[in-house]
Design a protein around this nucleic acid. Structure first.
Lengths: 158, 158
DNA sequence: GGGTACTTACTCGGATACGCAGTGTCCGAGTCTATGTGG
DNA sequence: CCACATAGACTCGGACACTGCGTATCCGAGTAAGTACCC
């Protein structure tokens, strides 16, 4: 079970957009160059964020991407769901109702106990992701590297 | 991010082994037939469980698989780790230290804030998985379908 | 009748193909900007 | 000098190849049981 690498890219990029001026659009090319990432592929991920309503995109020269809303209202769950999709990691295929060991019809009504247990764990994961906003992460970065914002802002403006 | 289907197979199969007599080995072929699963592939998954110390295998006629220890001491985390591997879903590739936006050397010492946040969520997931044993799931099944154990035991003994 | 060697059939275990999602790349539609021209 | 038309360049957006992992399968090594045979 491996999460898409695009999630890491999207999170870092959203933070970079937060450091920059709020009313400034930054092109995918420049955002990609900041980390030496393949620009077209990052663009693909950013489009997912636009579809999810996290970013807004403006075409044409001087265009690019910007945050659709303040990062205080963007949770890690939002970004993960935008990139990875809303589907759950564990998907019960109801094998209990197949084969000679299949339970009678009446027993299929109660939910699969294994599915329930796995869902409970995954719900804890999602809850933790939803509890943390990008602003929280931003604050954490500020504490460990106070000069990061200014340095990022300068490079993006260059 | 999709979890391997083998996890579901492994969990159901471990419960089936728990229903059967503890000192009885059951072959992969019969375990697979119970749900009409491809026997060789299920065998592959069971081998992972053996390597993880959850099952023990005995070759030769009348051989097969059996639980290595009572299911009270087998958590969902054990099974998931055995099939999916110990690696974490989100893996920080440290893109912050690449490219022109790379932080100075001294700033690389503090851990990546994004990595920390993602680890926190994944830790909650793992904690919830480790908190539930197969015995808990078994008990849940008993409440919703009290006749399932006897039915499973009979079919496997047939 | 009892012990022994052998054959047999069945089991796990690892090595081998196939398919699909994630990864990476490319080109086209749209739009703003800058320039050159005419009034 | 100002307004306008035009050409240009830059942007996003979706459509097109490639790679790696998960899926599925097969065959060989090993073992216990059952059997036939000999003492």
């Amino acid at each position: 079970m491996r999460m898409s690498e695009g999630v890491e890219w999207a999170l870092h990029t959203c933070l970079n957009l937060a450091w920059a001026a709020a009313d400034q659009s930054i092109s995918a090319t420049r955002l990609a160059a900041f980390y030496e990432l393949p620009a077209p592929y990052l663009n693909k991920q950013l489009q997912s964020l636009v579809r999810a309503g996290i970013l807004t995109s403006t075409p044409g020269p001087r265009g690019g991407f910007r945050l659709a809303r303040p990062i205080e209202r963007v949770t890690l769950m939002d970004v993960v769901a935008a990139i990875e999709g809303p589907g759950e990691a564990f998907r019960c295929t109801e094998i209990r109702s197949r084969g000679p060991g299949a339970a009678p019809e009446s027993d299929n009504k109660p939910p699969c106990a294994i599915d329930q247990a796995m869902r409970r764990a995954e719900l804890a994961w999602r809850r933790e992701l939803a509890a943390q906003t990008l602003a929280d992460v931003q604050e954490q970065v500020l504490r460990s590297a106070p000069d990061a914002p200014e340095r990022t802002r300068r490079w993006l403006a260059d």
